[in-house]
Design a protein around this nucleic acid. Structure first.
Length: 349
DNA sequence: TCAAACTTCGGTGAACCGCG
DNA sequence: CGCGGTTCACCGAAGTTTGA
């Protein structure tokens, strides 16, 4: 472990242990498995409390135990197995003394397990909370309510979820602090507490992305249900680089693919295909993209997407939409959310 | 020179598969 | 059915490139 500016504490390892155990690319992300984390923690505790052997014998025992718990029930040869073996190997560099095992123990029991359960208590989608609200709103406002509904759901869902995240964090932070502040202080205490918060935020932040995406998807599907638009099966053997959430069959028997996202980001090139033959072969009239975030759309992107049978639906108050409205070509394929249903209905019936 | 445009990253959750 | 395993979409923030 690097020593940093004279403020380093052995408890800095809490952060790095947590990081390694959660890292799914390299190490299999086993830290999310609370059962194993608890098993590991109690194995370390009992070994340290009950053994009278000298340190290196206990260490050897614990290393074996660690390996067993990490690999137990896993099939050799799978990619996860290799990742976990690598995790075990790389952990060795930081497990030099029994104190290091105590630190690992605390990481599992007091950092990872609580964060896991916090994550479990935080919703992974906003739909339940938002559904009844949205339905009454749409009933009252009708199709013109569409202008705001997705953004409102987005905001409401975000707000509600952030509040929930804060509650979870404050409560578990408090518990952790009370738990350890009698035994440690100063830089040690700081290292543990900040490691907890930093990992909490990293993970909850990732969860937030998925939730935002599902929120848009859910809001759109709610709109479909509310206005009684039937989704159809996807045309056979047609796949895009981009996920199409639902297909709608027009009265002419062609298809419109609808994809819902918060933003396109680097995926914008997959939002259209230049292969018009492919579209014709599968009777695909257009691909519609419902987006709530417009800031990463440049004019170049808009025209490129729009010139290949793709249509973008943006929030009514979107500046990019406003700009496109003044442009004769662009307004054909950059459309306001509020006309989404009418556009769709005129094609379906 | 520096802001705008664009791309990359990565933990989570869901879908799916094969197995017992 | 449940469980391990794999794959993929999610997007906010950080990082890189472009172009005026």
């Amino acid at each position: 472990m690097e020593t940093n500016y004279g403020i380093s504490s052995p408890w800095e390892k809490v952060y790095w242990f947590a990081r390694m155990l959660i890292n799914s690319d390299q190490y299999g992300g086993i830290g999310g498995d609370s059962r194993r984390m608890n098993a590991l923690a109690s194995a370390i505790k009992t070994a340290i409390d009950q053994s009278n052997d000298d340190e290196h014998i206990v260490m050897e025992f614990l290393n074996q135990k660690l390996k067993n718990i990490l690999l137990e029930g896993r099939k050799p040869g799978t990619s996860i197995y290799h990742s976990l073996e690598k995790l075990y190997m790389d952990l060795q560099d930081d497990l030099i003394t029994l104190t290091d095992f105590k630190i690992l123990c605390l990481t599992c029991e007091k950092v990872l397990v609580p964060i896991n359960s916090c994550l479990g208590n935080i919703p992974s989608n906003d739909s339940e909370f938002v559904e009844t609200y949205a339905n009454t709103f749409l009933k009252k406002e009708g199709a013109k309510g569409l202008a705001n509904i997705i953004n409102i759901l987005d905001d409401k869902g975000l707000r509600g979820s952030l509040e929930c995240e804060r509650k979870q964090l404050v409560a578990s932070f408090s518990e952790l602090r009370k738990n350890i502040e009698n035994e440690m202080s100063g830089a040690d205490l700081d290292s543990v507490l900040t490691a907890f918060c930093q990992e909490f935020e990293r993970r909850v932040g990732q969860k937030r992305k998925g939730r935002a995406g599902r929120g848009v998807e859910g809001a759109t599907s709610l709109i479909f249900r509310h206005f009684g638009i039937k989704a159809s099966q996807a045309p056979e053997h047609f796949t895009t680089g981009l996920e199409i959430d639902r297909w709608v069959r027009t009265k002419e028997g062609w298809y419109i693919g609808i994809s819902c996202k918060r933003t396109l980001r680097e995926r914008w090139k997959q939002a259209y295909t230049t292969d018009l033959n492919l579209l014709n072969r599968h009777k695909i009239q257009a691909l519609w993209h419902v987006l709530t975030y417009d800031k990463d759309l440049s004019d170049e992107k808009l025209t490129e997407i729009g010139s290949h049978r793709a249509v973008l639906y943006l929030p009514d108050d979107s500046p990019k939409l406003k700009k496109a409205g003044n442009h004769p070509g662009m307004k054909e394929y950059v459309r306001p959310m509020s006309s989404f249903i009418d556009d769709l209905k005129s094609l379906v019936s």
